[in-house]
Design a protein around this nucleic acid. Structure first.
Lengths: 167, 167
DNA sequence: CTAGAATCGCATGTTCGCATCCACTGGTGT
DNA sequence: ACACCAGTGGATGCGAACATGCGATTCTAG
């Protein structure tokens, strides 16, 4: 579905979206808030900056911020630079010729599934996410960033609490 | 989207579906027809047999065949034993508590995306695939979701992730 | 100019899915 | 009973993705 890298990217983008469009956020700050390895997150954010989704500012007070209005950034734009989206276009059955004319038995079904999936990613913007209002868990409201523990309490918050609920 | 393993599984299942429900097909035969490494395919088919999608027969004339009518086997049933589908239910933002009550900002959007995706897999059965008969120009194109155009037939795809032009 | 904060680029270690090989078990036909 | 055939299961190699660490570079504030 999504690679780990894409998931990290989404976490960071959501954090920045909710923090505010104008302010720069440093890697360490985002990493701590989103529970993503800082060094790895830095690379991801750099890729997003190259892709034009983020813009970066070096030096004192620098960091990353969104390069466009939140409504202009959809989830696909975030995921696309990090994953090989083109693999979706490959024929699932591995046929050399598989298009709308000469198709494998799965072509129509698979094309529809992919279109819906990618379309969903494209239709959801960061603005939608930022507007989301409900009781939220970890992700802080823009005002109260987080009471960052000064001591590295490295006991990883157990993410393995698999919520094995059915849809 | 799909792992290589799942793709192999789909190829094999489609092959068997179109070959006929009652007949056993050997690993080598399927591997040759679907261009999948035989040794690896054997493992995949074993997993599908354990999951109850296939049944196997040892010995001379043995092989694999579908364990149920084609209409009762949907794509999700094929993919599910091979991938960790439960990861879709995990919170994308990694929050421990993320459900309909206390949700991360992406919860609603992500839940919708996943539901659509899994639903699509569930709604497509092997019967549909086996019945698929492509006659060029005759089969009606059932969808016009081309408007969002996430799957252009061209190779130029990465650009349109950004819904706007660069400044 | 200098110090400090943050990115950038490279090197390295770890994990996991993909793929192969081979000995074993069990069923079939003679 | 015997030989053959085909799935079963364990062990292993391989490579890409994931993750980390460090030094160099670039920018800002004073």
């Amino acid at each position: 579905m999504l690679t780990q890298t894409s998931e990290y990217a989404l976490r960071a983008m959501v954090y920045m979206a909710r923090k505010g469009e104008d302010r720069y956020a440093g890697v360490k700050e985002i990493a701590k808030a989103t529970d993503v390895p800082a060094n790895y997150l830095a690379k991801i954010l750099q890729q997003l900056a190259k892709a034009g989704v983020l813009e970066s500012q070096k030096g004192f007070g620098g960091g990353f911020r969104v390069a466009r209005p939140l409504a202009k950034i959809n989830l696909l734009a975030i995921v696309d630079p990090l994953e090989n989206i083109s693999r979706f276009h490959r024929c699932v059955l591995g046929q050399r010729d598989c298009n709308d004319e000469i198709a494998c038995p799965l072509h129509d079904a698979w094309k529809r599934i992919c279109s819906e999936y990618l379309g969903s990613l494209q239709n959801t913007t960061l603005q939608d996410v930022a507007d989301f209002k409900r009781k939220v868990g970890l992700v802080p409201e823009p005002l109260d960033i987080q009471s960052i523990e000064p001591m590295p309490d490295d006991s990883d918050s157990a993410e393995n609490a698999e919520t094995t609920q059915a849809t």
